[in-house]
Design a protein around this nucleic acid. Sequence first.
DNA 1: ACCTGAACACCGTTCAAGT
DNA 2: ACCTGAACACCGTTCAAGT
Lengths: 173, 173
Amino acid sequence: MRTLAERLEVAPNALYSHVTSKTALIDAVLDDVLAEVEAPAPGVGDPSAGLHDLMISTYQVLLVHRDLVPAYLARQGARGPNAQRLGEIMLELLDRAGVSGARAPEAMRVLIVYTIGFAAFATRPPIDAGASGPVPGEELTGNFVSGLRWLLAGIAAPNTAVNPRGRAGRRDA
Amino acid sequence: MRTLAERLEVAPNALYSHVTSKTALIDAVLDDVLAEVEAPAPGVGDPSAGLHDLMISTYQVLLVHRDLVPAYLARQGARGPNAQRLGEIMLELLDRAGVSGARAPEAMRVLIVYTIGFAAFATRPPIDAGASGPVPGEELTGNFVSGLRWLLAGIAAPNTAVNPRGRAGRRDA
DNA sequence: ACCTGAACACCGTTCAAGT
DNA sequence: ACCTGAACACCGTTCAAGT
């Protein structure tokens, strides 16, 4: 807060005329950033591909403020208006991909946690405060995409549960 | 640090005779906790089931110190001896599950990020500091397991890539 | 509505000194 | 080897007061 105030050339406590707390500010910033996520128009295109693109866009957008992401993850991706909008889009895509009922919110949460988790993971410890090369964690994007595909493949598969001790998976029968 | 020192009934700076920094302490604690993860003996049992059980055990063990997990995630799961041991076990299981070469470390990282990410996500914001019911986030275990199964199914599947624009996935041809 | 100075109640960490 | 008192350089936040 003090650093931000310095950058705005005001006293630190002046910020509290605009924001109730640091946490609320971070939540607001992250949700603001989510406005830049490129979401496919509802009802058009392959839903699986739509989910694929949506999560990748989310991942890349989160990387812009990657230092704030861990806090965001711990706060369970505080639901701002933009996060809410993306949630609705995800459910629509999942529904068209054949994932509905109790499985839908589960799949959504898994995709969200995976994506935010990877963005938080990409956060490099501040080794060199000066150098500002390409966005760190960008090298991990390929890894993120691989996992995303595995996840989507598993979600799309009818019931390919990898059950530990025999007994084919049947979660909703 | 000051709270810990109080609990140990020593001055805060006394801790620095045993630990170089707060970050190092957290890393050590988390790695210590990882010692409790139940890992299957190498070479025996179904590797897919082994991975399944290993990640679930890791998830549950991390929940014990769930408030430290977000920091741990941001530090990329700092590699202590126990984390290293688990990594080797994972690679062995992946190999026996038919995942080798460049795909193996990718799959490993995906599984780790997913697991730590979910544990970090399970962290509840401290609403009620007093009440200590069952470990929070325990209700999310079912959701975690669902996602884990989807992930393992996707990893195990030969090449069921969900490619955005046609063109069947072939990552290592 | 938006800012300020001053202060409160904290942090992690270092340093010199003790035993 | 392990501890202490004192201090440094910070935090986020509140409060009363100014315009």
